[in-house]
């Protein structure tokens, strides 16, 4: 039967088959419609979730996209009251202006110097301090740890007169080095807690073995503990660097603005005119300053999470 071609069947049989099949196909299409509704109902939750995520992505990305496209727009087009979401005559004019006419690169260099020095000083202090707090028991240890936690809440801005006095005394007033020392103090407070938390997870037996073999504490610290704690130290370094890179208030108050001796946040704020704001230049600077940091951030993210959750202070 199955071998027989369809034409071989009597016409009557075919019409009978059709007659039987027709209601079935109607029934199937009804079932399909019902099925569709059921699937729609089942998926309504998921569709809602996608809609929500879509709105959130627009909220998250629109500001970034808008500034990115504006950086390629002309100043003329940006002082228009019409909404425009793509530049009409895209060009590099804003970038050229920022890099050539404004001391943008000097500000970047200053930021790197001040923040880099602060991070380096803070890492030296925080690793040694955290090691002592993690490995040795001495009077005042608990008090010191709680004290560091309390100091974390102290905003540097509140002590600005004292900073001015100290930096004048040691001859660093208005200088990047002076600012770096002030930043370093804030970084040590965060760094000690993070790095100590990680040191605590490293088995002390490794160092004991080294000490038995005739090494001393310094050797154990440099050769064993520091290499093992690299993830936490890197995560702390990034936190410190980003924190300093973002800092505006202390830099504005402590640095001497002559000769463009300021960091990038202060420089960009100075760029702002009395009445008009050069949005095109701002947009180009925003892209130049953010892209490297965003790249580092996205690359380091996993790393970052591990270094932070293992460390003492979560947040």
């Amino acid at each position: 039967m199955s071998d027989q071609p369809l034409e071989a069947l009597p016409a009557e049989a075919i019409s009978t088959v059709e007659a039987i099949a027709r209601p079935r196909s109607v029934a199937r299409s009804r079932a399909n419609t019902a099925d569709l509704f059921k699937r729609l109902r089942d998926n309504l939750g998921v569709i809602g979730i996608y809609a929500f995520l879509g709105v959130m992505v627009i909220f998250a990305l629109f500001p970034i996209y808008y500034v990115f496209q504006a950086s390629f727009n002309t100043t003329q087009a940006l002082i228009s009251t019409q909404l425009q979401l793509v530049p009409q005559a895209p060009g590099w004019a804003n970038y050229q202006f920022i890099l050539q006419q404004e001391p943008f690169l000097t500000w970047m260099k200053n930021s790197f110097i001040a923040v880099g020095m602060a991070t380096a000083i803070a890492l030296v202090c925080a690793t040694t301090g955290a090691y002592a707090l993690s490995r040795f028991r001495f009077p005042g240890r608990r008090f010191g740890l709680v004290m560091l936690m309390v100091l974390q809440t102290f905003p540097g801005l509140l002590a600005i007169y004292a900073y001015e006095q100290i930096l004048t005394t040691i001859g660093l007033e208005g200088q990047l080095t002076g600012l770096a020392i002030v930043y370093a103090a804030g970084n040590i407070v965060i760094g000690v807690w993070n790095i100590k938390g990680y040191f605590d997870t490293i088995p002390v037996e490794l160092e004991e073995a080294a000490l038995v073999d005739g090494g001393n504490s310094f050797l154990a610290f440099f050769r064993i503990v520091l290499p093992l704690a690299a993830p936490a130290i890197a995560a702390s370094a990034i936190l410190m660097f980003v924190g300093g890179w973002n800092e505006f208030a202390l830099a504005k108050l402590l640095l001497n603005p002559d000769n463009n001796n300021v960091t990038i946040p202060v420089g960009l704020q100075q760029l702002q005119g009395e009445n008009s704001t050069p949005w095109g230049y701002f947009a180009a600077s925003a892209v130049l300053v953010s892209l490297p940091l965003m790249a580092i951030f996205l690359y380091m993210q996993r790393f970052f999470k591990a270094g932070l959750t293992i460390g003492g202070v979560k947040g």
Binding site: T128, G129, A132, L151, Y163, A184, I188
Partner: peptide
């Protein structure tokens, strides 16, 4: 020796300014 660097900076830049203020 391990505590000294942290102690100096914290005392100078964190504690002294709080008392000064």
């Amino acid at each position: 020796a391990f505590l000294l660097p942290t102690f100096i900076i914290i005392a100078l830049i964190n504690l002294y300014p709080i008392f000064y203020t």
